[in-house]
């Protein structure tokens, strides 16, 4: 079972991918909570297989400004991992993390933005760690890359990777935050063609 077509995954396979998403997002939220030393509420993550066309709708439309933090994944699983959040959530996150109360995103300094990138790095790292321990597969991630632009443009990068194996993408949405400063985050895991098979096989789902 080398090649899996994401468009034709059966229900059991989908449930497994969903569950991986849930556990990963939970770990990521815990990591964030420890980092800012505050209790963070987390909603039940929504895990969806979306068509490309719908992907950017989730993030408020293709032209909505978002922050994307991307890591390349290597090892026994290859692909990309992306953490996307709307600009307003990124804003809240930086304020929480840096203890600031800035009203406009443009007021953030290079250091603030670099902190944001590091958050993305840590929480995607936590997500990948849980995937690694669940599957017992070795996963190595690259340094984080960050871009702030239109949702459609940011999402085109993982969408193209998904595009090689099907017409749909696996999207995990989480909501976390403290008090009024809610942060909505989206994880997008993009294993390459072979890695879907590797993940499912390691969990005993496929031959």
């Amino acid at each position: 079972m080398d090649n899996i077509n994401i468009d034709t995954l059966d229900n059991i396979q989908l449930d497994v991918l969903r569950e991986i998403g849930n556990i990963g997002a939970g770990n990521a939220t815990t990591a964030l909570s420890q980092m800012i030393n505050k209790k963070i509420d987390m909603g039940v993550p929504k895990v969806n297989i979306s068509e490309f066309k719908e992907l950017s709708e989730v993030l408020g439309g293709a032209e909505n400004q978002v922050v994307g933090i991307l890591l390349n994944v290597e090892g026994e699983i290859n692909g990309m991992m992306m953490f996307v959040l709307e600009k307003v959530s990124a804003h809240n996150l930086v304020n929480i993390l840096m203890g600031k109360e800035l009203n406009t995103f443009e007021d953030f300094t290079e250091i603030d933005l670099s902190a944001l990138k590091e958050i993305g790095n840590i929480i995607t790292g936590a997500y990948l760690n849980s995937l690694s321990s669940l599957t017992n597969l070795k996963i190595i991630s690259s340094i984080p890359y960050m871009a702030i632009d239109m949702a459609g443009a940011i999402l085109s990068v993982p969408a193209i990777e998904f595009g090689k194996i099907g017409d749909k993408a696996l999207l995990i949405q989480t909501e976390f935050g403290e008090g009024e400063d809610k942060v909505f985050g989206n994880f997008i895991l993009i294993p390459d063609v072979k890695s879907y098979g590797t993940i499912l096989k390691s969990l005993g789902i496929t031959e």
Binding site: A62, E63, M150, G152
Partner: peptide
């Protein structure tokens, strides 16, 4: 994304957020 369309004048074709 991964879509196409055609039209005649005075139609306007648009695609949002090309990356």
């Amino acid at each position: 994304m991964a879509d196409l369309n055609v039209c005649a004048s005075p139609g306007i074709l648009t695609t949002l957020g090309l990356g």
